[in-house]
Structure formats: C-alpha cells, structure tokens
Design a protein around this nucleic acid. Structure first.
Lengths: 228, 228
DNA sequence: ACCTGAACACCGTTCAAGT
DNA sequence: ACCTGAACACCGTTCAAGT
C-alpha cells in the first residue's frame, strides 16, 4: 500500500470518530488519535475536513441526528451526507406513512431517543449545533405532518413539535445524568427533605419513565383539537 | 501586594470562570486564561481545585444548578458551596412554601430555565455531571412535595418529576440550538417537506412555546389524580 | 488529489521551590 | 497554607513537500 490514497472518506472518519467517542469519551477524541485509528497521519483528516475539528464535530452531529439511521429497520443508506442532493429531481413527497399520527410520533420519539442514547458521549456536541440537513427536515416534516393530522393548526403545530422535541432531548440528558456517578461530595439526606427521603427507594425503569411522560405529553398537546 | 495570598477563593474562581465561559465560550476557558483573569499564575488554581479542570467544571455545574440563586428574588447566599454543611444542626424542614403546588412548580421551572439560559455556554458541562448538592436536593424536594400534594403517589411522583425536569432541560437545549446559526450547508426546502414549507414563517415566541408546553405537561401529569 | 513530516503556538498538569 | 516558575507530554493547526 502506497503512502497516499489511503481510502479516507468522510464517512469512515465520522464512523471511526464515533467509535473513539463511544469507547473512550469525547475528550479523548484527538486528531492524532483519530489518525492512528484510521492508520493515517492526523493531518490527512484536514483534507476531508478543511475547517478542522469543529467541522468534524458538525458532521458527527448531523450523522447522529439522522433518526432514520437508528430505527430498528432503518435504511441507513439515506442520502444524507455532505452532498445530500437528490440524485434525480425527485422533488415529490415520498410514500406517506400509512399509520395513524400518534403512532408515527411514538416511533419518531423512540428512534430519536435511541439515536441520542447510542452516542450519549457525543451529546455535549449537540447543544450548540443545529444541523439543517435533509434528515433534519425529514424529522420536522414527520412532526408537523402528524400534529396537523391530529387537528392542530399553525402555531399550535410548531409549539407541539417543539414540546415533543424538548421532551425527548431532555429525557435523554436526564437519563444519561442519572446513570452517571454523582459529582462532588453528596449532601446528606436529612429532615429538611422529607419527600425525597420517603421516595428514596423508588427508582422506576428508565424506559417506563420515558413512555409515561411521552404519553402524557402527547395527550395534552392534542387535547385542544379533541375538545373542539 | 506580596506574591502569595492573592485572596483566591473557590467562589471567585468559579465566578470568573463563568464570566469567561459566558463571554468567550467554553473552549476559551483555559487554566492559563483563568489565571490571568484572576491576576494569578494558572497553577495557583490547583491549590483550590487539586483535581484540576474537571473538578472546576463539577463546581461550575453545581454552582449554576443552585436554582435559588437565579430566582428573581433569590437569596443567593444559600450555603451551597463545597463545605455545604448546615452551620447548626438545623435538620428541621424550613418554612414551607404556602403557595399551591402548581404555582410552586411553575416558579421552579421558570427559575431553573433562567439559570440554564443565563449560562447557556456552560450547558455541555451539564450532560455528564450530576451534582448531589444540597441545592439539588432542595430542587427535588420541591418537585416531589408539589406532585405529592397534587395527589400523585410513589412512582407516579418520581415519574412526574422526571418528566418536568426533562421538559425544562430539553426546552433550554432546543432554545439554544434554535438561536444558533445552522451548521453545515442547509438543505433546500422542496416538495418533499410540505408541512415544513407551509409553517416556515410561523416562529412563535420562545417564552410562549415554553409556557404552552409546560402547562400542557403539568395538566397531563396530574390528570390521573384529578379523575380519581 | 491525497497524504506526509516538521514546525508553531498553545494546553493541562507535575513538581520543586519560594514566602 | 498559598502561590510561583520551569518543565513535560500533549494538543490543533499551518505549511511546504512528496507522490
């Protein structure tokens, strides 16, 4: 094998970066270590991501945000990489999902949650990055379409989608935090915290907590449409 | 002024670190820059945070997480720093909040949201850090107490508190992301995204979005108690 | 076009030393 | 106890050079 043309691609770089992040943590992802894992000099990565590590982080967020990729039977090959232009002028809407709106929302929420949980170590990257990829638009279309079908209109739809997105994201953050070890010296539970003390042993299953809140939220968000 | 005893305290270090984070971003907080801002050599910080930057990050998260500090009329002097042991053996519960449970929850949510939004640049630190300070216990006590008063029991209380916490955290993340510039080349809105296209101009006020979702969630979480 | 290798400015942290 | 100053291993990135 010659010294150049090592077969480096954006996808290989992103995938390998995620492997390092998942296995060793975000802080251990360095350009040099990533280069080692790809069996290439670190500087070769800059040929594919000329703007450096920030651009790589952006690409990682966009990659993980592609909810379809993480669905149980996701196609994964969706045209969502940097050159995410439709191959043909296929501007027509794809086959619409025949399931009822609430089921589509549950599926979207479960897939998005799975995507974030799978790469929980990469979560800090999501805070200040908002990919506007086609995959992101597909997600938004699912939400807006479902809530519209549920009977909401205009700003109601946007608010409901925002609430659902907030809930899923926040649930993952809460789960990840709950699984981590407490930081700093834990304070003592004394008489000032009677309810916390009383419920100290109650630790419901994370999945059940997520589902219960999701059902409550979905029901509440679409209540206005039902009472009209 | 002599060369040592520069009056460095944990609180001064944390405050100055937050000023740098808020003003220049998380990545620009370095030990050397922080030392400069405190007019001290970087290495002096290690005397107060022997475990280094990670420990400083932990302290920052604990500091910002003290919801009471960010309330409009918060006392701010709450005994929540590293030596957060009660001065006396004041193990009795403090004066109970006389307001109805739902108002206490709204206040908690607004205060927590404000705390996180005020230091949005520090948000990535929150993902993998869970302070178990007295301030954190106070927050949990507010939530558990309020939902218990609303008529929930046991696991219901824990689930409701988790859902509310998830919603507030996720809302802040969503707000911060929405305010940021989109990353990577934005995809084009075409016929495949009819609902997104139709609602493109609808951009409700962030505060209104938060409140609408919060009210829906609170109503739904306590519905079971009302119907019994 | 794709990758290498040396170099630069910067970083977190250690350690011995000062007062 | 509190802070300094030099040192070490590492980092992201630039740039000229190789093929």
């Amino acid at each position: 094998m010659s010294r150049n043309n090592a077969g480096l691609t954006e996808d290989r770089i992103i995938t390998e970066a995620l492997r390092i992040i998942d296995g060793q943590g975000l802080r251990r992802l360095t350009m040099r270590r990533l280069g080692d894992a790809l069996e290439v000099e670190a500087m070769a990565i800059y040929h594919h991501f000329p703007l450096g590590k920030e651009q790589l982080f952006d690409a990682i967020v966009a990659y993980v945000s592609d909810v379809a990729r993480w669905a149980p039977n996701g196609d994964g090959d969706a045209d969502t990489d940097a050159d995410g232009v439709a191959d043909e002028a296929e501007q027509a809407a794809p086959e619409p999902d025949p399931r009822p709106w609430d089921e589509r929302l549950r599926t979207w929420a479960a897939d998005y949650r799975r995507a974030l949980l799978t790469h929980a170590q990469a979560l800090p990257l999501f805070i200040h990055r908002r990919p506007e990829t086609e995959a992101a638009l597909r997600s938004l279309e699912v939400l807006y379409g479902a809530f519209t079908e549920a009977g909401l209109e205009g700003a109601e739809v946007v608010r409901a989608a925002a609430a659902l997105d907030s809930y899923v994201t926040g649930s993952v953050v809460r789960e990840v935090r709950a699984n981590g070890l407490p930081v700093q010296r834990p304070a003592v539970l004394d008489g000032r915290f009677p309810h916390v003390t009383a419920l100290r042993e109650v630790q419901p299953d994370a999945e059940a907590v997520f589902t219960a809140g999701l059902e409550a939220l979905l029901h509440a968000l679409t209540a206005s449409a039902r009472t009209v």
